[in-house]
Design a protein around this nucleic acid. Structure first.
Length: 271
DNA sequence: TTAGGGCTACAC
DNA sequence: GTGTAGCCCTAA
């Protein structure tokens, strides 16, 4: 078949992610036309961008190939299975574009903290809220878009589930890109690296919560989300958008509470 | 113009 | 043989 396959470079991938953050998912043509990205993506077509994003999305969702994404059609008809190791809260998503405000904690679990500039003590849910706030996608943002947003803006990276649980499991410092390594040197002093064990610890805490504790946690999550919204309001002066985000945060809180109640933790007779 | 399905080269 | 990733085709 004519021309050989043209592998995506890290620069192209970065440009694509940045483009999605800037223009949104599905705006492939717009991204290509953007002079900021066209210099990097000039060899790519809008279809290439779409295909690459699809691959990224699949990986971010922890599926090893698009083959699995096709199964999602069938999966809808199956009883949702509560993943033992995740906090997946509700319904099975109809496609590979899972809506993050439905499964926020699974996103958190997959997040790897790469040291970046400032903002060192941002909690995971706050980062996600910030991403949702800024992306302003109707009905919430998909995981890949949020991952890209956080990666582009915060030098964080959300590792693909499969890759994370497989190849990179043994690495305490998960992968960095050159640019991020450089920024790490500069910002090391003011960063608060959230290690894998810390993440696990936090998740374990959540898992073992009583409904009351979960409610308190949810309240705190709402408070943090509202604080994030206040920030966004100040910065962007978009009160309406922030209100929508508050709803997303509330949904997150509700889902967390429901999840905790649903689990009812039989192991936790004493507490 | 975009999304989704399919094909296939390539690496392991 | 299997999984991944890039490219092609088609419908909307």
């Amino acid at each position: 078949m004519g021309a050989p396959k043209q592998k995506w470079t890290a620069e192209e991938e970065q440009a694509l992610k940045a483009g999605v953050v800037k223009h949104g998912v599905g705006k492939w043509r717009t991204i290509l036309k953007d002079p900021e990205f066209s210099s990097v993506l000039y060899l790519r077509s809008n279809v290439d961008l779409k295909d690459k994003w699809r691959n990224l999305s699949v990986m971010a969702n922890g599926w090893s190939s698009r083959e699995k994404s096709r199964l999602s059609v069938r999966r809808v008809h199956q009883v949702p299975r509560q993943d033992e190791n995740s906090m997946a809260i509700t319904a099975v998503a109809p496609s590979d574009e899972e809506i993050v405000d439905v499964k926020p904690l699974q996103v958190s679990r997959d997040m790897v903290h790469i040291p970046g500039p400032k903002r060192s003590n941002l909690s995971l849910d706050k980062l996600i809220m910030e991403a949702i706030t800024c992306l302003k996608e109707n009905g919430g943002s998909n995981k890949t878009a949020i991952a890209a947003f956080i990666e582009v803006n915060r030098k964080y990276r959300i590792a693909p589930i499969a890759a994370y649980s497989d190849r990179r499991r043994n690495s305490s410092v998960l992968y960095l890109e050159g640019r991020q390594k450089a920024s790490m040197k500069i910002d090391r002093d003011e960063t608060n690296i959230l290690t894998r064990s810390q993440i696990d610890l936090e998740l374990e805490k959540i898992r073992s919560m009583t409904p009351q504790e979960a409610a308190a946690f949810a309240a705190r999550a709402v408070a943090e989300a509202e604080a994030a919204i206040a920030e966004a309001e100040e910065a962007a002066k978009e009160a309406e958008a922030a209100e929508a985000d508050a709803e997303a945060a509330q949904a997150f809180a509700d889902a967390t509470t429901k999840s905790a109640k649903g689990r009812k933790s039989p192991k936790r007779i004493h507490a």
